[in-house]
Design a protein around this nucleic acid. Structure first.
Lengths: 117, 117
DNA sequence: TGTACTGTGTAGTATATACTACACTGTCGA
DNA sequence: TCGACAGTGTAGTATATACTACACAGTACA
């Protein structure tokens, strides 16, 4: 039911196979939430955690924060703030890139990185 | 104090000079909010209106919705959803574009549009 | 067999969001 | 001077968000 929940449980269980420190309760304690809450999040019977909590989860599970945030229906505030500074420009770009395949977008990323602009 | 409020008031007042239908009360009625609420929004003594309300405002004032949303601290849900579908890719791209000047970003937009990818 | 874990269910809560309802005051033209 | 506008101030509200607190049942191992 919940993409985020399924993903989190899968990753945590995997980690848990080689390290008992990745029980639900231990993770919950490390990231600073109640185990019952994390349990509900993993089973999708709760809305998405806050950005802060998702970031702590990402760090603890060694996952990419942007991915967890996306699965939780959020966008990193630093990205949002970059976009908000030039809303028309980024709106145009992002909508244009909507249907462009990954490899082509990656080529643009590489071009930008190389300074070919 | 409020960028959004200042902007809205300025645009509305300007429109009002040539068309009395742009009084605060008239606009409020057309977009479906109480005049007192719009008044507070324009003076920045209220948080940002919802995306829906900002969109109606943009339409009524003939302004760009992405700009009003940005001033209101929001990002269009359609953009957010495009990003969330490929979070790593877009996160990387957007962070890389953070300090790239407008004209260079525009060149990329044009390239994408021309299919040079 | 007990104690030390595991995950889960139920109920409640503080804070924020996005407004409404209504009364009030001021201005301006007829 | 009055009626129809204009904008504003105060108070209240429904809903969502992001959790907590605590009790409970099952499993394992010493």
């Amino acid at each position: 039911m919940s993409d985020l929940g399924d993903y989190l449980r899968k990753q945590r269980e995997q980690r848990r196979q080689s390290d008992p420190q990745f029980s639900l309760r231990k993770v919950a304690q490390r990231i600073g939430v109640q185990p019952s809450y994390l349990s509900k999040v993993e089973r999708g019977s709760e809305g998405s955690p806050s950005e802060e909590t998702l970031r702590r989860l990402a760090e603890d599970l060694n996952e990419d924060a942007d991915i967890l945030l996306a699965l939780g229906g959020k966008i990193s505030t630093d990205l949002a703030s970059i976009i908000r500074k030039r809303p028309k420009l980024f709106a145009e770009l992002i909508r244009d890139l909507k249907d462009i395949p990954d490899h082509a977008v990656l080529r643009i990323v590489r071009e930008v990185r190389d300074g070919n602009w």
